[in-house]
């Protein structure tokens, strides 16, 4: 069994800062991490490897510095790593990104047939959740998104049973390999790396592939291959008005009591939303 896990290196979004004057993103000094959602998928792939045996290849498309994320994944137990990097990929939107990644997966399949592709649910910087479905569609793989659990996987019969989150509940699906899976967050916890994997990760000779290595067509990658363009970037407008503060009377030199504050808050709420007051009263009157 050959499993490919697509991971993306992203800036640690909790620490994104916007330049106060130019409104641009200040990337300097922002640490890069593996997209947190990808770790749930990587862990699930490693669990399949532990259970039924598999070769796990991690794949990323990005600048040369994305190498750190690949080594991190190797230290967690991935077997091989491919860095897809080329200036010609710059500016790719999700359609072009999924095309480029698919070209690399096809090349990996020439070495050893790929049975499963894992992607993250979404990235924290792009946030689109489109690249996984894009890859599945291009490869003609069964598409299994928002998976909460892999119930069973039968290598001989090439069958897999999963639980998939849908809006109103959980679908239990049975399908055949090959497929593309995105795991829902919180479904597992990424393991700690083992010492020997860490040493191996440090020494591992990464495969670095360019557009020409995978045979991707120039017109389908980068800006040329991207139907969408960002026409404007801006900082959300702050709401014009700040909150009206709830105040209550208090005996001199003392803070108002919680009771007084609460009573004032109730009046403020019902005053601001007279309709809400009627509804609440109607509900209460109906004894709900």
């Amino acid at each position: 069994m050959h499993i490919v896990v697509c991971i993306k290196q992203v800036p640690d979004s909790a620490q994104i800062r916007i330049h106060p004057v130019t409104n641009t993103i200040m990337r300097q000094g922002v640490p890069a991490i593996i997209n947190p959602f990808d770790l749930f998928s990587l862990e699930e792939a490693l669990r399949i490897k532990d259970k039924v045996g598999a070769r796990v290849t991690v794949l990323t498309m990005g600048p040369p510095m994305a190498e750190t994320s690949l080594r991190k994944a190797l230290s967690l137990g991935a077997d091989d790593a491919v860095l897809l990097t080329d200036r010609k990929f710059a500016g790719s939107d999700t359609l072009a990104t999924s095309y480029a990644l698919t070209s690399a997966i096809k090349k990996l399949s020439e070495e050893e047939q790929v049975d499963l592709v894992f992607c993250g649910k979404q990235t924290v910087d792009g946030d689109t959740a489109q690249v996984g479905p894009g890859i599945a569609t291009r490869l003609g793989f069964q598409q299994l998104t928002y998976i909460t659990k892999i119930e069973s996987i039968d290598q001989g019969a090439r069958e897999i049973v999963v639980h998939r989150r849908s809006e109103g509940g959980v679908q239990v699906l049975k399908t055949a390999l090959p497929c593309m899976i995105t795991m829902l967050e919180g479904t597992n916890t990424i393991r700690f790396g083992k010492m020997d994997d860490m040493f191996r990760a440090a020494r591992y000779g990464l495969k670095t592939w360019s557009k020409d290595t995978t045979g991707a067509e120039e017109t389908k990658v980068g800006l040329k291959g991207s139907p969408t363009v960002v026409s404007k970037v801006f900082v959300p407008k702050p709401r014009a008005q700040k909150a009206t503060m709830v105040e209550a009377e208090a005996p001199t030199a003392e803070a108002p009591s919680a009771e007084a504050m609460a009573a004032a808050a109730v009046e403020a709420i019902l005053g601001a939303q007279p309709k809400l007051a009627d509804e609440l009263l109607a509900r209460a009157a109906a004894g709900l």
Binding site: L95, T128, G134, S166, E167, S226, T228
Partner: peptide
């Protein structure tokens, strides 16, 4: 932008080879 909508949108934007803006 639900589990169904995002799953389907990502797939048909690929078959139709067009642009999709999420969320």
């Amino acid at each position: 932008a639900t589990t169904l909508g995002r799953d389907l949108a990502g797939a048909i934007a690929t078959t139709l080879a067009t642009g999709l803006t999420a969320d």
